[in-house]
Computed example of a mutant assay.
Amino acid sequence: MSELLRISQRDDETPSQSRARIALTPECLSAAVLVTCKTFDETPVTDVVEELMRQTAAINSGDMTRAENMLLAQAHTLDGLFAKLAGQALVANHLDKMDNFLRLALKAQNQSRATLQTLAELKAPKQIAFVKQANIGNQVQVNNGTQEKPARTRKTKKTQNKLLGVEHGERLDTRAAGSAGGADSEMAALGKKHRTAKPCR
């Protein structure tokens, strides 16, 4: 292939660099496969590469005719393959052969459908809508710009819980006489002589 391929060398590259650059182009890689598959008899590889480059340039300029024709031809080929495999499944004399042929036929049918779907999307691309965010509400604030760091809350020193006037580490004396309540200040705590002999549990 390299003997038939004509390579144009740039001023800033060596011959090996120019060969590597050309050999790695999509058109050259595709031409290598096409020539290996015996698609062309004695056609020079350079002519195949140049034709692929012309088709690539057409697509880059917005002409999708070649791609559309290719997809339609492939869909027809896959449809013919589906019909061939389905026919072989119908005349198969063993259940395993019928199952294998039907599986392959349905795969070809699915690929034909996917190819036609790709062609339809190529002909009529889906419209992508870019919608700006709208926030409507009562007392709602949305900041889509730069976010400021929230102000730190000042740490407050934890105060000790002085429940019933007992300091930390002291035991609460439940037998001590309490003061009169605020609801009925005339009521006083019972004296020692009025208490029961046995404490209630």
Rank of each mutant, 00 (worst) to 15 (best):
A73F: 09
R21N: 08
P150R: 01
Q88T: 04
R19E: 09
H194V: 10
T39F: 04
D11A: 15
K158T: 05
L190S: 14
T14Q: 12
N60Q: 10
K84F: 06
C37M: 06
T118W: 05
E148R: 07
G80N: 10
A89D: 04
I22N: 00
V91S: 11
R10A: 10
N135L: 00
A120R: 09
G178R: 11
K162E: 13
L172A: 04
A89N: 03
V35H: 05
T146M: 02
A183Q: 12
N143E: 09
L34M: 02
E68C: 12
S16I: 11
L164P: 01
L71K: 02
S18Q: 06
A67I: 07
C200G: 07
K97V: 03
F130Q: 15
T56K: 15
V166T: 06
S18I: 01
A67K: 14
F101D: 05
E42K: 14
A32W: 01
A32S: 09
N144M: 04
A32G: 06
S18H: 01
E13M: 09
Q111R: 02
Q133T: 13
V91Y: 02
A197G: 05
R21P: 04
V131I: 11
M70C: 11
N60I: 03
K107L: 10
A176M: 14
E148T: 13
V45D: 00
L104M: 15
K193M: 10
A75I: 10
L164F: 07
H194A: 15
F101Q: 13
R201Y: 09
K198M: 00
M70Q: 13
K126T: 07
L172Q: 04
K158F: 00
N144V: 02
Q147T: 14
A57S: 08
M53C: 10
S8V: 15
N69G: 07
A129I: 15
K97C: 01
E68L: 13
R6L: 14
G191E: 08
A86R: 09
K97S: 01
A183H: 07
T159G: 05
T36W: 09
E68N: 07
D41W: 05
Q111Y: 07
E42V: 10
A20K: 10
A23P: 01
Q17D: 06
A73V: 13
P44Q: 03
S16M: 14
T65P: 04
Q117R: 07
L29R: 14
R54G: 07
R175K: 15
E13A: 04
E50N: 15
G165V: 01
E27Y: 02
S30D: 04
E68A: 15
R6N: 15
D96M: 06
T65N: 12
L34P: 02
K38I: 06
A23Y: 06
L5F: 05
K132A: 08
K192A: 13
E27R: 00
P199K: 00
P199M: 00
A89G: 13
G169M: 09
T36H: 11
K132F: 02
R19F: 03
T36M: 08
H168V: 10
A189G: 03
A176L: 14
